[in-house]
C-alpha cells in the first residue's frame, strides 16, 4: 500500500492543490492528513471541503491545534498573528465545517503505524518535536513501529533502538529512506501550507508499505497567488511574507 502524509496545510489552497496533483501521479492508495487543515491561510473553506471529500473516499484526517481553535473560536495560548488568523477563520467556517473539524480524532492506529498531530506522549498539550529528547518521549509513548506526525513544520526522521536515544536524520527530498529493522521510526512531516525549514516548497511524504520505504517530497507552488489572497483577506502581512522564505 502507498500512503501519502500531508500535514499543516493551514488554509493554503495553492499548496494543497499542487501537493495533491503531485501525489496523484505517484499511484496512491490512501491520503492521511495529520492535522492543522486551517489557520494562517486565506482558503480554510476550500481546504476543509477538499479534505471532507477525501475522507469520504477513505482518507484519515486528524485534529490539529489550529483546527480545534478555529472550530471553537478559542485563541488561548496563541501568538498575535495566529490568533488574528484563528478569529478570521472561525467566522469564515460554517457550522458544518466546524463540526467536521471537531469530529476529527486526536490520533489513529493503522497496522504498525501511529498517526498523531504533535508529540505522542501527550497529544492534547500540543508539544513540538524538535530534538532527540522530545522524539524519545514520543517514541516511548507508543508500541507502534512507525509514528507519523506534524506540527513543527520541519521535516525530520528519527530512528531509535530499544537501548539508545533517537538519532535524527534530515530527509533528502525524493530519496526513499528504508525504515528497516529492529527499531522504531518517527517521521515528522514538513508543512504543506507553511514550511519553516528555509525551503518554501510544500512538503509531504509517501510511505510504501511493501517496500517499507518513506520518501519525502517538496513541491513548488504559486506562492504569489496565496500571498495576494492573504493580503486581500486582511490577514497579518507577515503570514504572506514568511511563505516566500520558508520560515
Amino acid at each position: 500500500m502507498r500512503i501519502a502524509f500531508l500535514s499543516d496545510i493551514h488554509g493554503n489552497r495553492e499548496a494543497l492543490d499542487a501537493v495533491i496533483r503531485h501525489a496523484e501521479r505517484q499511484s496512491l492508495d490512501r491520503f492521511v492528513f495529520l492535522g492543522d487543515l486551517v489557520g494562517y491561510g486565506a482558503d480554510p473553506v476550500y481546504v476543509v471541503d477538499r479534505v471532507a471529500r477525501a475522507i469520504e473516499n477513505g482518507a484519515v484526517s486528524l485534529l490539529g491545534n489550529h483546527d480545534a481553535a478555529a472550530a471553537t473560536g478559542t485563541i488561548e495560548g496563541m501568538n498575535d498573528y495566529a490568533s488574528a488568523a484563528i478569529e478570521w477563520t472561525h467566522h469564515e467556517l460554517d457550522d458544518d465545517s466546524r463540526a467536521l473539524l471537531l469530529n476529527m480524532p486526536m490520533s489513529a492506529v493503522d497496522e504498525d503505524r501511529l498517526y498523531v498531530h504533535s508529540e505522542a506522549s501527550s497529544p492534547r498539550s500540543w508539544q513540538y518535536i524538535t530534538d532527540s529528547g522530545s522524539a524519545e518521549r514520543s517514541l516511548r509513548a507508543t508500541t507502534q513501529r512507525l509514528t507519523f506526525c506534524g506540527h513543527v513544520h520541519k521535516p525530520q526522521l528519527y530512528h531509535m533502538t530499544p537501548m539508545k536515544s533517537p538519532v535524527l536524520f534530515v530527509p533528502q527530498p525524493g530519496i526513499g529512506a528504508p525504515l528497516v529493522g529492529n527499531r522504531k521510526w518517527l517521521a515528522v512531516q514538513g508543512a504543506v501550507g507553511q514550511p519553516r525549514d528555509h525551503n518554501p516548497a510544500a512538503a509531504y511524504s509517501i510511505l510504501d508499505t511493501i517496500r517499507n520505504e518513506l520518501t519525502y517530497f517538496r513541491v513548488p507552488y504559486d506562492i504569489e497567488t496565496t500571498a495576494a489572497k492573504i493580503h486581500a483577506a486582511g490577514l497579518p502581512k507577515i503570514l504572506a511574507a514568511r511563505l516566500f522564505i520558508g520560515r
Binding site: 533502538t161 539508545k164 538519532v167 536524520f169 533528502q172 528497516v180 529493522g181
Partner: peptide
Amino acid sequence: LQLPDLLEEE
C-alpha cells in the same frame, strides 16, 4: 550519505 546512518552515535 543520503540515507540514515544507523551506526552513527550507536
